[in-house]
Design a protein around this nucleic acid. Structure first.
Lengths: 277, 277
DNA sequence: TGAATAGTGTCTGTGAGACAATATTAT
DNA sequence: ATAATATTGTCTCACAGACACTATTCA
């Protein structure tokens, strides 16, 4: 092996082709919260959470749905790649993004060896509803997440289609960590996208409890009832009013405005309290 | 654009060179807990946490210390790469590993474009102390982690050397997430390794509270005093005995054995209670 | 015997769960 | 008036922090 005196000298001789080469892609799991009108004028709108999916128009996985995503560019910072792709594919800009997990199964993509880093994006879907999505891009509502010791079953629907998949939970052998996930049933989604969705759901459920992440999914002003409904959708359970109000008390600031015309007592509008802690 | 009828047909024509190519590497942050003999025969051994570092013998970053790691192989699952590398570089086998974060700054490595996924490994260092490490591999004790609103300062030492670095904490602009980290001062470590170390310290601190991860760093049988000292080293603060015992009460099972000969009342040995929840 | 840790008892304050009660609106 | 949500009050229970006390060993 040749000896080099300086780093410059070494780099001049260096040949990148000596190392295995991979394509690197990102998958973006976009969660959006939106309102569902209730027919009863007295009832509050309910909230639902949706995932943004793209219909693949080319191989591999042609005609299956997949998460928005794409390849990282040659001189692009990994963390900036999802920002660019989200803007291109969906027109969405200035959005909360966080890295989830990097998947690197050699058989992930039949074309070539791909390493894929997944990101989770959170938005208030009502706020961007007017933006036109590409016509191969579509919101799917998360209508059911059934979890027990062994499996997680997820059901997504849009106007015409229904997507279902099942994830198998397994305790890792050696470790005392949480569960590891593997895909058990999946007919509609490309790649290992079901794993990404489940990881994101878990991450969101956890982080809503100890961060202020939820306010990325809220409009600027909101009632506590609305905020509570968002918590309930994400956590998948009802919360008691007084307990909820205690929890979020110092995360919000009251405004002077009220939301009226709802067929019942008007409720005060609140804002996110950014200076919290 | 040519139209393909089947996936097979498409794949035959497909040329991987159409996509930017990256090298993919893993960095492994190995945390080990070990005992420090106290000169006073009556005092309990204290515990310390150490990080495994390797001295680089080639460019880039020649003669700097870095985390064990290497390139992912062509047909290797990403998550299996750190297992192989750990075994080769250190002889360590059957170890708790979890993925931390994937770093992909284009200037990370002067040789070429590299994406690097970091993993955290946890071990009971006393249990493997007899294994001979390569002579360019060395444990550094984490002797100080000073954190305030703006910075995290970390000091590592081995017998001869002292490594210090400072990480700058910044609130992300858009997001309401936790802090984002950047390197402020670093003279001794290669690549972005200081970021990996700090991420791991944070992850460990968090997870020790809501998982059983700590038992990966314990011998099979241990006293509650020892376990408490490990918590204290990781959390960086003293804990009160009764509170601690309440917390870990259903994570451990008492054995019939006692640890004696310590110059004070013997203490019962406990085991990890695996069937917990 | 004394230093040191092991292990337990218990008081207090905080905070979540639960339920009740009151307030206010649009139809 | 009524249905529906908004908002607050408060009781109880679980649990963490804090401190005190007892137990036991070995040089």
């Amino acid at each position: 092996m040749k000896e080099y005196k300086t780093e410059e000298e070494f780099l001049k001789d260096y040949n990148p082709k000596d190392y295995p080469s991979f394509a690197v892609s990102v998958d973006i799991l976009v969660f959006g919260i939106s309102s569902v009108d209730d027919s009863n004028y007295k009832k509050l709108d309910t909230k639902k959470m949706s995932v943004l999916l793209v219909k693949r128009d080319s191989f591999p996985f042609k005609d299956k749905w997949c998460l928005p995503g794409g390849f990282v560019l040659e001189n692009e910072n990994l963390d900036e790649s999802p920002v660019r792709i989200l803007k291109n594919e969906t027109g969405l800009d200035n959005i909360y993004l966080e890295q989830l997990y990097t998947f690197g199964n050699p058989k992930r993509d039949p074309r070539m060896r791909v390493i894929s880093t997944s990101y989770m994006a959170l938005i208030d879907k009502d706020r961007i509803i007017e933006k036109k999505l590409n016509n191969n891009t579509c919101w799917f509502d998360i209508v059911e997440v059934k979890e027990n010791d062994k499996n997680i079953e997820v059901t997504l629907v849009n106007n015409e289609e229904k997507i279902e998949f099942t994830i198998k939970k397994a305790l890792k052998e050696l470790t005392t960590d949480r569960y590891s996930f593997s895909i058990k049933e999946n007919n509609s989604l490309a790649f290992d996208n079901p794993l990404v969705i489940v990881s994101g759901l878990e991450r969101l459920k956890n982080k809503i409890e100890y961060t202020d992440i939820v306010f990325n999914m809220m409009p600027e002003k909101f009632t506590l009832g609305e905020l509570q409904k968002v918590y309930e959708v994400i956590l998948g359970k009802k919360l008691l009013d007084p307990a909820f109000r205690r929890i979020i008390a110092n995360k919000v600031i009251a405004t002077d405005e009220y939301k009226t015309g709802e067929g019942h007592r008007p409720s005060r509008l609140f804002k996110y309290n950014e200076r919290n802690k």
